[in-house]
Design a protein around this nucleic acid. Structure first.
Lengths: 219, 219, 219, 219
DNA sequence: TATGAATGAGCCTTCATTCAT
DNA sequence: TATGAATGAAGGCTCATTCAT
């Protein structure tokens, strides 16, 4: 992660700047957990400050306000996703395997990052009030769509996939299936008395989701 | 809706009983909007009271606490869904048409009831803290699953559907696709610059979702 | 007790009046317990009403206000004491035995009626704001003092008691010793790790108190 | 008083720390008056805050809750008593004079500190719910008992006092007589039409109380 | 850069009391 | 006489934010 690197960033003048970045980083870590846990209105500045290595005053010093801190948290979460996607190169896989890989990786990321899912849920509760101020989201998404479009094109060319699958629709479908599994875990697993968190249940669902996507694209 | 009926419930003695139920009903309506809008912690009892025909004191008279009111709202929302499902009889449709109907109705319900979607989102933010106290959820869900199981069985028998589709997985898939379209509307439509609310966009997505489900079940 | 008699008071017209008195009586019983338990400000009208056979409205119907009810409770408690004192005739005892009897009976009454002690405590917390409106207190007290004065006089005449003991001072001394044992039971028994409520402890303290009074009056 | 000393506590860095203690002290002073006046349930946080040099918010900052403030007040009152007792050395007085001194000082303290008496009354109304959390009470009391035991022993040795007087019983008797004179002032002075607050009345009662104790212990 | 103290506005909740029937 | 519904005022408590040092 980029943030880990920041922690040890050295400079010639001493340790001051590094301390500042460490403080910022530490606050963000704590705040991410809090906002993901309770939402914007449910989180408490006092509680965040308490779990921090620094103080409440520092939160305002660095982030200006509760909303400013929330925005910084949201941005950091989206940035982390971007980095994951950027890492993946699938040009050497055949279209079908590439698609399965995209779906699988997406599924795994959501499960491994419930805090991201919860932040996005909360942002939608707020009707996207702050997402507009997070830079770079659209660029990242275009890349994601481009990648899917390329895979689809290769699949159509190779006869694996049917024509007419819109890459944005495809992404929305993948995203919905992966997101829901984490976002609605509590109400669904209670209401349908079905475990959704065990490795076994996740593995099974993972396969189902891949299967859904594949059967939809197949020629 | 059942509540509308209550409003006019007649009794021999006059209108008193009806007034109390009207008050309760009115509070629930307003509270549903508020909790769906801002979540449990974001909603304000004062604001709910203001938009009500009665007073803050009456909220506590009838519901005991903010959480008590929230639970009543949650229960009412789930009850409303149950009633919709119960109304639908699909025995006279062929399996394929029945399945398409189920998906379409589910899709429409979510779009027409964003407040339900938002309440469920919020309840998941709260890690399902209150859903356990809403009676009847599991019974209703069993009926939903039974209905899907029957459709799947008929489809397998007629050769339309493949074997091995688990009805709970199927429901989860349908639900995810319909839910996400409303729940993540704000972040998705911003991030991918795609309209998700216009009648045209909804009609298109509705078809896609039906198509996803159908192609997954098809033999 | 006079109140018990009221419960069954019959009249020619039916049961209406009796019901009313029963209601009043029942409210007073419950209110006495509540006010003795929590004090005037700590007691809750709602809770009193709940434990009553009737309703909150009836409390206001019969007693006008929370304070009115409190005054009625106070009056009833003082009336009960009066009746106990009136019952006691000690002319046939020798002065020493009579004095011992007065002290013993007073000690026992306080222990058997902690609710009376607590009501008086509370009234003193209120700086005696309502005791002035309770009729008959002074008359009763004059009788008590007269009785003590007579006993002292007989004792002086017989050579048992010294001269110069003021009957009001004597009553104050008796009262203080009997009252404190109940009123300060909680802080004292905690602070000095001494049981003050067991039959054994009470019997011992009873003897001490009698002894204190006796040795003070003895010639 | 220890608190007065705290007000001027000096430190090298300036006056900040002192300000905080002043605020705490000021709140405690006002709260003591309020709780002594109205009891725990009768006291109003708003009113306390108003009479303070600081604000309602500060009360919660320093004491957490109304009960927390009440406990702090109770502790301070008990601490003050301890200090008074600790000051008194009576080894150079003969047993009789020492006992008279103990009783007189106790009598005076109660009269000069009605707020202490009222706090203890209130705590007993609450059935000693908080006294257990006040540290040091038992230690202080043991010292008081030890002192009495020593006086009694000296008196028995010198032939002034009889044997068999239990020091705890003695303390209870002294305490009862001194406490009652303040605690039941309102109901008693009304009921018996006797002044209990004038210097003259107090002086007279003081002598009586000393006399009661003395005659009880005398050989 | 850092910290403990302080704050005003507002939040959830409760109370004694009254009204309509 | 009796009851459920309703209320205004206030009570305890919490929040995000700022100040003094």
């Amino acid at each position: 992660m980029a943030e880990s690197a920041l922690k040890k960033k050295e400079n010639g003048r001493g340790t001051r700047a590094t301390d500042a970045e460490e403080t910022r980083f530490n606050i963000l870590e704590v705040a991410t957990a809090e906002f993901a846990d309770k939402g914007l209105s449910g989180a408490r500045i006092d509680e965040i400050a308490e779990r921090t290595n620094s103080s409440k005053r520092m939160i305002y010093y660095y982030f200006g306000s509760k909303e400013g801190l929330y925005r910084a948290v949201l941005e950091r979460a989206y940035t982390a996703v971007r980095e994951v996607d950027a890492d993946n190169r699938r040009d050497d896989l055949d279209p079908d395997a590439a698609l399965r890989d995209v779906v699988g990786v997406t599924f795994d990321y959501h499960n491994q990052h419930p805090e991201f899912v919860r932040l996005v849920m909360n942002e939608n509760i707020l009707r996207g009030a702050h997402v507009g101020e997070v830079p770079g989201i659209r660029e990242r998404n275009r890349k994601v769509i481009d990648q899917l479009r390329a895979i689809l094109a290769r699949g159509v060319a190779s006869g694996h996939f049917r024509e007419g699958v819109d890459p944005v629709e495809l992404h929305m479908t993948i995203s919905a299936l992966c997101f829901y599994n984490v976002s609605n875990r509590y109400t669904f697993s209670f209401g349908f008395e079905r475990d959704m968190s065990s490795p076994k249940a996740l593995a099974r669902r993972r396969m189902s989701v891949i299967d859904v996507i594949e059967s939809w694209c197949r020629a």
